[in-house]
Structure formats: structure tokens, C-alpha cells
Design a protein around this nucleic acid. Structure first.
Lengths: 211, 211
DNA sequence: ACCTGAACACCGTTCAAGT
DNA sequence: ACCTGAACACCGTTCAAGT
């Protein structure tokens, strides 16, 4: 037989080297970055990793389990950044603002994570209790920050969770609008800065509390 | 030949009766309602309408064109509801609140429309200028309402478009959180009510304007 | 344990052909 | 004009088989 005919020419090592699971998540994110969540296919991920179409099923039950892993990672990263923002600024007012900026910055610099976290692709609560727990932990960072500032007398004495949902809706709204390109041409920092100012003071003018 | 052998037994009329285009949009919405945007397939839509897999291409260039039609319809409906809310309440303060409630109510009662409008499924700006125009028209309803209240001296004299983006981010954020089930167990009306109150007055307490 | 290819039941889209 | 079926190049997932 000819010496070089039956040589397998593509695969260098028959098995994937190190941590295939992590590689799959990383490659999925790269794909979502460029193609969008709808453009994510397991076959292409495998192909790009030089691995069979079905190797993925050794690490994830199915496609939505892979997405759940992406979402979980995202919530952990977000929580760490929020905690860092709280820790980073000794002034309570400044720390609160830093959290808001950190939240939107996270979403803008990790849009793929963020979309998976909130895009409704993961059937969140049903499937993955770990993901629900991570999501709850991120939210609690905000709740605690608000409660602390209420104790300092800086914020109104509303239910801290209620106030946290309000603040969350604002930063989430800004983040989604930026990611979806609805604020194209706008300076994200300026948008967040305006929002934080009016979040504090309100949009109503003066003491006009009619009737 | 046997008398009843070659009878076509399924199709009652060989062509689709009336407005296939409208039927396709309606059926697409029904599918998204039950299966989610990811679960929308053109073949299933055709099947459910008793029409060939490819009949759709007489009315839409491709799948994303169908989604663009859904998005356009959504923006038109949203604008009409916002305009109705403004018209419906003579009191400026009440009308503004009514708009916020109408916005979130629209998103919650038409989640499929809303997801398509803002989910990034339509490559918005690129493909469909009509859709961009409809979206802009909805936004202008809010901008005009704000400018009018500024002339009455009710709101701070910020750039009305800037303030509109802020208000939009809030209602959009609430709408997305409700639709994605992140506020499950919460009373949507109560969330919106709280948001509108604090949107007006701010979350900071008293006249503490330090430094 | 980890990986593989073949196979199954699906997709979106194109196209020559029918009425 | 409007609709059709066959065909193409894709999917996610399962499964018996290899190392």
C-alpha cells in the first residue's frame, strides 16, 4: 500500500486535549458574538473545535443545557463586578453610582452572556436551579446596597426589594436598548449618567405637588 | 379505476381563500405565543394553514421578512395605544402615567409582538426602513408628551429626547422583566405604579444634596 | 470515560412546473 | 398571480460501536 495514503491528515490528537467542557462554552460565546444566539449551532461549535458533532453530549444534556451554562457563568461574572463596584468606592453615593455603571458596562462588554441571561432562551426557572440561584445572588447585591443606604438615611424608606426592582428595571432597560442598537449613536456613559442623576432627584420640577 | 381512490382528501380549496399574507402573520404570532420565537418554523406555519411549505415565499422574501412584518405591526399597535392614552386623560399628570401603564400593558398582553420588536431577531435598521420609521413614530409620541409637560412647567427642562430615553428605558426594563418571568409573582400594576411615583420624585431622601 | 460515524426526523430556501 | 412537490444543504439528537 502507498506509504502516505491512509494517513489521517486532519486530527492531530485523536481526543480533545484538556477541558472540552470549558472550550465548548468559550466557542459557543464566540459564535453568539458573531452570529447571534439564533446562529448558534452545536455542529459548527464541534467543527470549529476539531471535534465530532456529538462530543458535546458527553458534557451537556442538550443545547439548552449549554446555554444554561453560559447564563450561569454570566450571572457569576455580573455578581463579581457588582461586588467589586460596591467595595471599590468608600463614598456611599459614589458606590451606588459605580454599581449602576458596572451593570451597564457588563452588559455592553458581554452582550452574548447578557442576551443568554435575559433573552428567554434558557427556560430559566424550570431547568436549572443553579442558574436561578446565581441570578438571585446578583440581585441581592443590589438589595443589600440599597438597604445599607437606607440605614444611612440617604434613600427613601421604601421596601428595599421594591426599590431594587425599580433600579434594576432602569439599568436593565438601558442595557437592553444599547445592546439591541436602539441607542446607536448615543454615548452609553452619558445615558447612564443622566439616568443616575434623575433616578436620584426625579423628573418632576420643584415642589409642585398639585391638589 | 376505483371511484374514490384518487380523491384528494385533505385540501378543500386548492388555493388559500383570502388574505394569505395576513393569515401567515397571524399564525406566526400564534406559534410564537406558544413555542417562543426560536420555535417558529415556516414549515409548521404553512402546515397549520393547510398550505404548501413554500407558499409563504409569494408574500415574504424570507423568514426575517415575516418577522419584520410582525415587528412593524407591533410598533403600529403600540403607537396607537400610546396616542389613545395621551388623548384619554385631560389631566397632564394623569395622561403621563396612563402612557406608562399603556406601554407595559401592551408588552404584557402582546409579548410575541414585543419580543420580535426588541429581541434583536429583526436586523432592525439594516433591512426594513418601514419598521425603523414605525419605531421612531412610537418614540416621538413620548417625546412630544414630555415636551408638552415641560412647557407647562411640570417637568425639569432637560433635553426632551434625553428624558424620553430615560423614561423609555424604565418602562422597557419593566416590560422585559415581566415578559421574561423575572418578576413572576409580582403585581405588574403595582410595579408600574411604584416606578411612576419614584420616576417623579426620585429615590433620594429629603434635600440632602451633599457638598 | 471519552469519542466516533451513521441514521432519523427535522429545518430554510430554490426552482422548474402546474393552474 | 398564486400555488405545488422535489431537491439541496443544513439542523439537534440518538445509538451502537470503537479506544
Amino acid at each position: 500500500m502507498p506509504p502516505s495514503a491512509a494517513m489521517p491528515k486532519k486530527r492531530r490528537h485523536p481526543y480533545h486535549h484538556g477541558d472540552l467542557r470549558r472550550a465548548l462554552v468559550r466557542e459557543a460565546l464566540r459564535t453568539i458574538d458573531t452570529e447571534g444566539v439564533a446562529g448558534l449551532t452545536l455542529r459548527a461549535v464541534g467543527r470549529r473545535l476539531g471535534v465530532s458533532r456529538t462530543a458535546l453530549y458527553r458534557h451537556f444534556a442538550d443545547k439548552s443545557a449549554l446555554l444554561a451554562a453560559v447564563g450561569r457563568e454570566g450571572f457569576r461574572m455580573l455578581r463579581e463586578e457588582l461586588e467589586a463596584a460596591v467595595r471599590g468606592d468608600p463614598d456611599p453615593r459614589g458606590a451606588f453610582e459605580a454599581m449602576g455603571r458596572a451593570y451597564v458596562r457588563f452588559a455592553v462588554s458581554h452582550p452574548s452572556h447578557y442576551r443568554v441571561m435575559f433573552g428567554g432562551f434558557v427556560e430559566s426557572c424550570r431547568n436549572d436551579p443553579e442558574l436561578v440561584q446565581e441570578a438571585g445572588a446578583s440581585f441581592q447585591v443590589l438589595v443589600q446596597a440599597i438597604a445599607s443606604r437606607q440605614r444611612d438615611g440617604l434613600l427613601h424608606d421604601d421596601d428595599p426589594e421594591q426599590m431594587a426592582r425599580y433600579v434594576w428595571a432602569i439599568v436593565h432597560g438601558i442595557a437592553m436598548l444599547v445592546i439591541d442598537g436602539q441607542l446607536r449613536g448615543r454615548d452609553t456613559d452619558a445615558e447612564v449618567g443622566y439616568a443616575i442623576e434623575r433616578l436620584g432627584s426625579g423628573i418632576l420640577r420643584g415642589g409642585v405637588s398639585s391638589t
